[in-house]
């Protein structure tokens, strides 16, 4: 059986800067995979390539055994890739539930069904009490959850989470971890970027470490954290290890 997501020899250059070089990763159905690495390693760049923000300079991307390298972002959403943004991008002049309805409309253009679906997703994410509040009035941790809710409303097969747990209080982060677990239980595959290893390691089935745009190490989280190469990559990035 083919993997749900695969990148084959993916490169991304920004002028002279190589943000991703020859990245080949695969994510199986039902997995929670952690994509970690120090700041500037190219994690968000890889996410954007998978989500279809821009085509890679070189290489191909596969979803469910189909080449989606040339597929635009909107179509990838329809095919089952949902994503959040590292820097949250809420629809600020819309209410929380209206934000989520935008996502729900991908699957159902019947407004009442979309609204009901959106409310269900908000309940799932613990935001139902804030449904009618303007998105601009949410506190940062709620905005992160709104990002997740919006993406979930599109009923993704693969959910890409870019640093949704970073910068939260320990309690908020724990709630976030629980949320990701529950998302997986509904059958959604999760690929999550985290900068801080401690939070994600207990959560993920597998970890992929990116450094200087390349895959450095890949394996079980317990092995990865002890790998000397990973420790070296994270040296001088004390915040990430010690947080």
């Amino acid at each position: 059986m083919t993997a749900l997501l695969e990148t084959r020899g993916v490169w991304q250059r920004f002028g002279g800067l190589v943000a991703n070089s020859d990245v080949s990763i695969s994510v199986g159905r039902g997995e929670i995979v952690g994509l970690i690495g120090p700041n500037g390693a190219g994690k968000s760049t890889l996410f954007n390539l998978i989500a279809g923000v821009r085509p890679p300079t070189q290489g191909t991307i596969w979803l469910d055994g189909e080449d989606i390298t040339a597929t635009p972002a909107t179509e990838r959403c329809r095919r089952g890739i949902g994503r959040t943004f590292q820097v949250v991008k809420s629809f600020e002049t819309m209410t929380v539930i209206d934000n989520v309805i935008v996502g729900a409309l991908v699957r159902s253009t019947e407004m009442r069904a979309a609204r009901r679906k959106a409310f269900e997703v908000l309940e799932f994410c613990g935001l139902a009490a804030r449904a009618d509040v303007m998105a601009s009035e949410l506190i940062p941790s709620e905005k992160r959850r709104l990002e997740v809710a919006r993406a979930l409303a599109t009923e993704p097969k693969l959910l890409l989470l870019d640093e949704v747990l970073t910068g939260l209080t320990p309690l908020e982060a724990q709630t976030g971890v629980e949320l990701v677990r529950r998302v997986r239980e509904t059958g959604v595959t999760v690929l999550m970027v985290e900068h801080v290893m401690e939070i994600v390691m207990p959560l993920v089935d597998r970890a992929i470490v990116l450094d200087l745009g390349k895959v450095l190490v890949e394996g079980k989280p317990t092995d990865v954290v002890r790998d000397p190469k990973v420790i070296a990559a994270y040296l001088g990035d004390r915040h990430a290890v010690g947080a």
Binding site: V53, P72, C77, F85, K89, F91, T93, M94, V106, A151
Partner: peptide, 13 residues
């Protein structure tokens, strides 16, 4: 959605 954030809009189809 387009008015508030075109990038996010695209990611939601």
């Amino acid at each position: 959605a387009v008015k508030d954030n075109p990038d996010a809009a695209e990611s939601l189809g």
